[in-house]
Design a protein around this nucleic acid. Sequence first.
DNA 1: CTTAATGATACCAGCGTGGTATCATTAGCA
DNA 2: TGCTAATGATACCACGCTGGTATCATTAAG
Lengths: 137, 137
Amino acid sequence: MRILNRDTDLATRALCYLAQQQDKPISVAHLEDVLIAPRPFLRKILQVLQTQGFLKSFKGKKGGFILNKTADTIYIKDLIVAFHGPINTNECVFNKKTCPDIGSCLLKGKIERIKSYVSNELKSVTIASLIPQSKGE
Amino acid sequence: MRILNRDTDLATRALCYLAQQQDKPISVAHLEDVLIAPRPFLRKILQVLQTQGFLKSFKGKKGGFILNKTADTIYIKDLIVAFHGPINTNECVFNKKTCPDIGSCLLKGKIERIKSYVSNELKSVTIASLIPQSKGE
DNA sequence: CTTAATGATACCAGCGTGGTATCATTAGCA
DNA sequence: TGCTAATGATACCACGCTGGTATCATTAAG
């Protein structure tokens, strides 16, 4: 069971780093060195973060990225959603038309509850809370 | 975030049905009708369940499958493991060599805790508990 | 000895993940 | 003005996993 993928992971790390910088735009080249991630992939991630409103970008020489929100208002869950869509899709795991007497939906109920729990937990983890000796948890 | 796949799902439904039958072997053909699932896929699933010790099989005419354990000792978690391997693989989501100062491992800790919770929850759900008005929860 | 069942095994299409590549655009700076 | 360093947009791609299918071998009932 995978909760974090490489993209959400990398996004988290990038945001954590940016949260610790001043308002000077940080370039992909710089982040590449710090995060030790493949440049083109990093670019893709950052572009997504920008279009989704997590980052502000500056083009041209001396350009780069800065946070567009404060670190304590960026939730891991929102990152996952940004990259992979809603966590708690309510589609029935079972064959649509079937769902017979077998108690399938008892199971469905249990699974849904577990998913809600996970979703809520992820909703409580902010970027700020992931920076050592920082505010936020 | 996917917890149940089609195989674990179908396996669950098959086991629930078999748990409600007597010790007469149930054939794939029969299960196909009841569960409304594609026959070859169903066969594959049942074969896995057999090799993993959940089912006992009888070959030849009048053959089929029966439970090899009591319904209250079959846990959903074990099914998931049987089909997809361990839930809580401890591989680092981050780049092995990196894991820098950014608090990556703070996140890792949180994720691991969530996974443990899910794992434990799934460990508490038995086939028996999924059969309406039955013993077990 | 036919037939209805499982065992074993191999194959396959489609899609999501984890990327790469390329060209267009913008802004700093000499 | 024009070079250059940066992002924007977009398209492409390999690989593995999921959700199956297909086929032949084996076994047991009648």
